[in-house]
Design a protein around this nucleic acid. Structure first.
Length: 867
RNA sequence: GCCGGUGUGGCGGAAUGGCAGACGCGGGGCACUCAAAAUGCUCUAUCCGAAAGGGUGUGUGGGUUCGAGUCCCACCACCGGCACCA
């Protein structure tokens, strides 16, 4: 017995063409993948059909990748799941737009350029080429004729156009303010890019505050709409994302209230959500870094106060974000030497400066009500300021009770000391009724707010007000690899927009520029580029580039007419396709990208360019791919390389594993799943197709009925499963059908039976969502022309969905005691009779007395007993 | 602290208020083989029992219901987001 003969035997044991041979050097799937890639390239089965196509349309969009290197496991999951949806709709007879592009501006290219001395362009486009090649192998059904790169001038030209349109409407503006500064990347960051611990999302550096003149987009003008329109997305977006967006926008409603200040002609306005507690305001606090604080202190008589304030202000400005944001740190502050007058009680309130009040929220000043606000209470206790309870929370108000009774008043008098915030240190923030508030005593919170605001409003001392946590979107970046901001400055420093016909303002070559972070834009070094002219007048270009989130905030529109060089997008095409029917991507973009894209969509709606106000009708967030319980990272050394997985198991097995692992929004721990198991199943499915001996036009209804029933139940259930994103369940159902078909082939009606072919075809058609190569191969084996992806799914035959018999369960006191095979049409009384006759049931009832019998024919009988 | 989510076998996970654990992974047994691999068949929540059969069981405690993994209340644990935003 020689090695050679062993090999020959092994090869013969594998059915020809199943693609899963035993040669370790080149697994069968390699041949299949190459084969079908060539076919698809020629056939272009996934090109979006022309505008005269009569089919209904679906726009299925995957978040486009950043070309930071080759594709990784996270991409593999996202694109596998998005492709299931795209392929499904195509097989449901829809004309599907499923495009891909690259989000190719951004810092990593620049940092790589600095590190290795290469052009960011080269680095970027080399990575794109590599990702594209991997993507083609991975075989999502993209329309490869619509690819875009945001770093192409043909794309970023329209970024600049968008900026100018917004500038015209006053939605893009420059302002001088404190910004988040990343000392490592040497650039400003949007609020959204600063992590909760005060570090930069990108570099991890501790973010500091710096005062700079920067470009902003007026997203706060859209805060109400961004918040309210979330209601439309309810049920179609993950509730988690909706909640995060609501939270981020952070709308609060209350009132602005004016306070007289001694020795100052102008009043000071504060914002509060609790006007009902006004009588409990015992001091006022202003943000130390506000202009107001400086001005108040300047007017203080005591020089010691002024010096103390200066010291405090310096200390505050030096403290880092991370210190400032530490939740329960000691309250700090200084007295400004000035007093305000409580408009309700006429009391003198000392005005303090403290950094727990933020200069850029509300009015930068608050009325402090220590009894009913924990922060104010902490401050009052630290500096020994008075605390006065004005809401009795000992008897919470349900509903809106307008006036108190005599009895209630007595309860107030008996107000127990153990609730006094001054002693307990716990502010009373609950509902209650007003006390110590003069004419407003006895009112509930809701009524008190309305009455007190109305009372002050009548005197011109208050107005209803709204505030948002959301701030305007800072888009200037002091970096090279981004869209140049299309603004010029004349000799006097006035802003002059670049005329639209001069767009794009192209990035100058990086050659000769110092890209190293130095606090100002590298473009400043491109003298010939910066110094330009307009209408014969010398001009200097703005040297900053735009936040790359601008690029990705409208790319979904560009996909509808990617090669149009006369406009950003073709409104006719947009009318046809948009908004996106299904968006697929990671939850990491739950706030930033999605909020910005929603904002820009509303802006374009207002400008009349689009007819919808929400860009993404439905959103699916896939989970992350983990390894042994944690996110893959270099430092943990637990990175699973996609390319290696594909080499070992093949594309189909990896894609199938992603879909079968669990619900798409759950994380996948790669250590818990089995690509080898998926590969085994795919081989099994392909053997089914190879075993079929009947011809394509065989008459199905002559086939084995039991198998036919199962096939048709799959056809009945599959669409619902996909539309509910239960991909894992559909895969399980395909596996069940495969197992059943195997049994019929081996020990039932045999491989020539018509039902076997019908089942095999169903397996190929449904499997094509998950494993396109294997499905094409099966489809060919079964005698059809490619591509299986273009064959419509079949409809279930309703007569085959009616069971010939069902299992009825008989319970006694809720416990299953017997199972009966009955007709699905059995009458209730017949079923009950059968159930009572069952020996197992009689044994279970024993001596007990039957008190109730529930019959749900034909599935269930439940007999309730008592002793 | 606030908001959102999740708790089901050894593991990933199924389950319109009606048979808990589909499907798969892992594990056991068997067939084929000189043998192994591959493939196919089969068993696999747990406890008692030789078996027949029975008890228990979906984070904990209550409740609604003929019937609860599923609905309601309270609690515990874990995960995610936000957090001095007045």
């Amino acid at each position: 017995m020689t090695d050679i003969s062993q090999n020959a035997a092994a090869e013969q044991s594998v059915p020809a063409g199943d693609g899963f041979g035993t040669e370790p050097a080149e697994p069968g799937f390699v041949r299949i993948q190459g084969k079908w890639q060539r076919v698809w390239e020629e056939l272009k089965p996934f090109a979006t059909a022309d505008s005269d196509d009569k089919r209904p349309r679906k726009y299925i969009l995957d978040m486009f990748p950043y070309p930071s290197g080759d594709l990784h496991m996270g991409h593999a999951e996202a694109y596998a799941l998005g492709d299931v949806i795209a392929r499904y709709w195509r097989q449901q007879g829809f004309n599907v737009l499923h495009p891909i592009g690259w989000d190719s501006f951004g810092l990593p290219a620049e940092n790589a350029a600095i590190k290795r001395g290469v052009d960011p362009r080269e680095w970027t486009y080399a990575n794109i080429a590599q990702q594209r090649e991997s993507m083609v192998r991975y075989a999502p059904s993209f329309d490869w004729d619509r690819v875009l790169h945001t770093s192409d001038p043909e794309y970023y030209k329209w970024n600049q156009w968008l900026f100018l349109k917004m500038y015209e409407r006053g939605l893009a503006y420059r302002k001088d303010s404190w910004v988040n500064w990343d000392p490592v990347d040497q650039t400003v960051l949007a609020n959204e890019q600063v992590l909760p611990d005060g570090t930069s999302e990108r570099s991890g550096a501790l973010v500091v505050k710096k005062k700079l003149t920067q470009w902003y987009l007026r997203i706060t003008d859209y805060a109400d709409r961004l918040l309210d329109d979330l209601n439309q997305l309810e049920g179609r977006w993950p509730s988690k994302v909706i909640a995060m967006q609501r939270n981020w926008i952070g709308r609060s409603t209350g009132a602005d209230i004016d306070f007289e200040v001694e020795g100052r002609s102008e009043k000071v306005t504060v914002y509060t959500t609790r006007p009902d507690t006004l009588a409990g305001a015992t001091f006022m606090v202003v943000a130390p870094d506000s202009d107001l604080a400086g001005e108040l202190v300047a007017g203080a008589e005591d020089a010691g106060v002024r010096m103390a304030f200066q010291d405090y202000l310096e200390k505050v400005q030096k403290s880092t974000e991370i210190e400032r944001l530490t939740a329960d740190r000691e309250k700090t502050g200084v007295f400004t030497g000035r007093y305000a007058i409580n408009p309700l009680t006429g009391e003198r309130l000392p005005i303090w400066a403290a950094d727990y009040v933020l200069s850029d929220y509300g009015q930068g000043a608050i009325m402090a009500v220590p009894a009913h606000d924990q922060r104010d209470l902490d401050f009052a206790r630290t500096f020994d300021l008075p605390v006065r309870v004005v809401v009795d929370t000992t008897q919470p108000v349900t509903g809106a009770i307008p006036v108190i009774t005599e009895e209630d008043l007595e309860n107030h008098a008996a107000h127990p000391d153990e609730f006094d915030p001054a002693t307990t240190g716990t502010a009373l923030t609950g509902e209650g009724r007003l006390v110590n508030s003069g004419q407003f005593d006895g009112l509930s919170k809701v009524n008190a707010i309305a009455k007190i605001v109305a009372h002050l409003e009548a005197q011109g001392l208050a107005r209803k007000a709204k505030n948002y946590r959301l701030r305007d979107w800072l888009i200037s970046r002091q970096r090279y690899w981004g869209t140049p901001i299309p603004i010029l400055y004349d000799r006097e420093g006035n802003e002059v927009p670049v005329p639209e016909e001069q767009l794009p303002v192209r990035l100058p070559a990086s050659e000769g520029l110092d890209l190293k972070p130095k606090g100002t834009s590298p473009l400043g070094g491109a003298t010939e580029w910066v110094e330009t002219e307009l209408d014969g007048k010398p001009m200097r270009r703005d040297t900053d580039t735009m936040d790359t989130f601008v690029d990705s905030s409208w790319y979904f529109l560009r996909f509808m007419s990617p090669n149009d060089d006369t406009q950003a997008f073709d409104p006719k095409e947009v009318d046809k396709w948009a908004p996106v029917d299904q968006y697929v991507g990671g939850v990491t973009h739950a706030i930033l990208h999605l909020l910005y894209a929603r904002f820009i969509t509303k802006v374009l709606f207002d400008m009349g360019y689009v007819s919808f106000t929400e860009p993404f009708t439905a959103l699916l967030n896939q989970g992350m791919v983990l390894m042994e319980g944690s996110a893959m990272s270099k430092s943990k050394g637990n990175i699973v390389k996609l390319s290696e997985q594909l080499d070992e198991f093949g594309v189909d097995a990896i894609r199938l594993t992603m879909a079968f692992a669990g619900p798409p929004e759950d994380d996948i721990d790669w250590a818990d799943v089995s690509p080898a198991g998926a590969a085994k199943f795919l081989a099994r499915a392909q053997r089914i197709a190879a075993d079929v001996t009947s011809v394509p036009d065989v008459v199905w209804k002559t086939g084995d009925e039991k198998l036919r029933r199962q096939t048709h139940r799959l056809w009945a259930d599959a669409p619902g499963l996909i539309e509910a994103f239960k991909f894992n369940v559909l895969v399980a159902r395909i596996m069940e059908l495969t197992n059943a078909t195997r049994k019929v082939i081996d020990s039932g009606a045999g491989p020539a039976d018509a039902a076997v072919r019908e089942a095999a075809e169903a397996i190929a058609l449904t499997l094509s969502l998950f494993a396109p190569y294997a499905a094409e191969e099966m489809w060919e084996t079964l005698g059809y022309e490619p591509s299986v992806a273009l064959y419509g799914w079949r409809k279930a035959d309703p007569t085959l969905l009616v069971e010939e018999s069902v299992t009825a369960v008989v319970q006694v006191d809720g416990k299953v005691r017997d199972r009966l095979e009955v007709s699905p049409k059995i009458a209730g009384e017949d079923l009950e009779k059968l159930a009572r006759e069952s020996t197992a049931v009689q044994r279970a009832i024993g001596e007990r007395q039957v008190v109730n019998v529930i019959v749900r024919a034909p599935r269930l009988v439940n007999i309730a007993t008592k002793p």
